[in-house]
Write a protein that binds this DNA or RNA. Structure first.
Lengths: 351, 351
DNA sequence: GTGAAAGCGCTAACAC
DNA sequence: GTGTTAGCGCTTTCAC
């Protein structure tokens, strides 16, 4: 463990001032002659600038933070890979935290990042606006991915009103809601709509939705696609854990044996649905059709292979990282990536 | 974006010196009276010590680095969750990098961590000893997880000799090889041995091994368990990618239609084997039996459900993090965690 | 028990 | 173009 050369060492060895070394290394102005000389000396001394000094001086850590609910969920694994790929190309460090879909843990992790002066953060948010206030107040550049924080009740109500009006054709499209924070989302509305239409086309009428944390936009889209009145018993929620997902799926199948199709809001929920169906001797797709959000490698391994709503997890991560690295123009940008219904074998005609 | 209070602000507001504030906050000696006062003032100012100053002063970043091959591989997702869980309990940041099983990328990521002065690192290594020399030389505390770096050829030869002697009962057990670096591994030898014995018990004689990067210990165990002479055509390797895994599996099935069982060295390879078998109209387990390393949630969803060698990914990560946080006594510790053969439905008697 | 002061390695004013 | 210098926020001697 030999101690590293500092900028001062390089300056002395090269017979120049530290500022010159700093300039040369960060591409500032310097005569070609000195530049070359300094570079040579630095290389010879195996000098690597320390991020420590730079960070303190600039009062900010380079790189970015990344907060996801659970890295054993393949979709978040894909998302994380996208972020890491982008960060790798710029040599930036990424501090990763797993929230377990718990706002409290999320809050603590935000605090940790603040303490580290990480001022760029990509997050799949779990808490609401209040949870995120400290980060925003501290001036962090935040980009949300995959979903948005839950919003206050009054806003939700306004949305509901909007949705109704939209149904009635009173307003053409979603009212623009000024996003405080840029985000990268999948086109949940289109994805869910396509899936529900597909199921209806197969004759299904009692379609259930199996949701998890952060799936509010997906449920909303589901309600809209199914059309009022929605059978509320067919919309059930689980918390983030696999156990909870299984319990929710199993409970749903048992309480409503009359349902003929289910849309799982995420791959963990889809997994649970397959498991629960098998346990209850329900055949897919003979007894129940299944569409799962997220295309994951194992969807094809199931039997029958699962029909899925694919969303580009890796791309979402990559785009989010790009966005957080150079915060686009004046107002925050929201990127919506397309989804695709991939029809495999888990849906059949209503019996 | 209000700027944060510094230790100096607290000191002034409390009418004490900065040293006192520092002491109080890091549990040093101070009179109960001052302690309480300082704490109150700090709380009132919403003071959060900046890691930047501390890091520079101590010439090291807190927290740790984590290098894995691929976060979309569920096993590494589990491992990462374990590491993050441990780090969360201590409030430490974790800088994560994904190597893609590429020594060059690994090398660059090590460089990045060095530049950040991250001096604790947990890694699923991809490169060899040479790749890891810089980290060790710089005095990093490294803990390897899941596997060890490839070692120089002469050592491998010595191992081969040892293995032969062991087979002949000339020496009782593995010769102790002084590990330079502590590590957390699964008991690959026992896992593979159990699986092979199980397959042999079912009557299988032509058993193949489908390996990936870093599976050398597993192959070695496979060779040992199968016993000489090993049919070399039945031992094939893929690189880290899913495509390569599929190609290897497919090639294996086609070139050796006489094989009756295959052991996949990891879950990505198992996935590929299932896919390739299906494509070639091979029925599992009727035509070919399959055992996969790694228990992942979707193993149960396959049909038939996959028989697996389970290793505790999350625990491995957690233990590795513990190890890297307090580097145990004098000599480096190696922790070996047990594996378990979980028999489901992908193995049947030889036809 | 407490305060003053010296840096940790770097960047950015500012002077030359 | 280049050198000098003043910190960034913190911990840690060293006096008192």
């Amino acid at each position: 463990m030999e101690k590293r050369a500092t900028i001062k060492d390089v300056a002395e060895a090269a017979g120049v001032g530290v500022a010159t070394v700093s300039r040369v290394l960060s591409g500032g102005s310097a005569s070609p002659r000195t530049r070359e000389h300094v570079l040579a000396v630095a290389a010879q001394l195996d000098y690597r600038p320390s991020a420590l000094g730079r960070n303190l001086r600039q009062r900010r850590t380079g790189g970015m933070g990344l907060l996801v609910p659970d890295l054993t969920d393949t979709f978040y694994g894909q998302l994380a890979e996208g972020v890491l790929a982008c960060a790798r190309s710029t040599g930036e460090p990424v501090v990763v935290g797993s929230t377990g879909d718990d706002p409290e843990q999320e809050s603590e992790l935000i605090g940790m990042l603040l303490e580290q002066s990480v001022d760029r953060l990509i997050a799949v948010p779990t808490g609401d606006a209040e949870t995120w206030a400290p980060a925003v107040r501290a001036g962090m550049t935040v980009v949300f991915a995959d979903r948005l924080p839950a919003r206050p009740a009054e806003e939700e109500q306004q949305d509901a009103v909007d949705d109704l009006m939209r149904l009635d054709g009173l307003i053409p499209a979603a009212r623009p809601r000024p996003p405080e924070v840029p985000s990268v989302l999948a086109d949940d509305r289109a994805g869910i709509r396509t899936a529900v239409r597909y199921l209806r086309g197969l004759g299904h009428r009692r379609i259930a939705f199996l949701g998890g944390p952060g799936h509010d936009r997906r449920v909303a889209a589901f309600r809209e696609a199914v059309g009022a009145p929605v059978d509320e018993e067919l919309v059930v929620f689980a918390t983030g854990s696999r156990d909870s997902a299984y319990a929710a799926a199993s409970g749903l199948f048992q309480s409503r044996p009359d349902l003929t199709a289910v849309v799982a809001g995420g791959n963990v929920l889809g997994e649970a649905a397959v498991l629960a169906a098998r346990e209850l001797d329900l055949r897919v797709p003979r007894d129940v059709s299944l569409v799962m959000y997220d295309d994951v490698p194992w969807a094809e391994l199931c039997s029958p292979p699962l029909t899925v709503i694919a969303q580009p997890g890796r791309d979402m991560g990559y785009r989010a990282a790009e966005l957080v690295l150079r915060p686009g123009g004046r107002r925050p940008r929201t990127v919506v990536l397309p989804t695709e219904l991939i029809i495999r074998g888990s849906c059949g005609p209503r019996r």
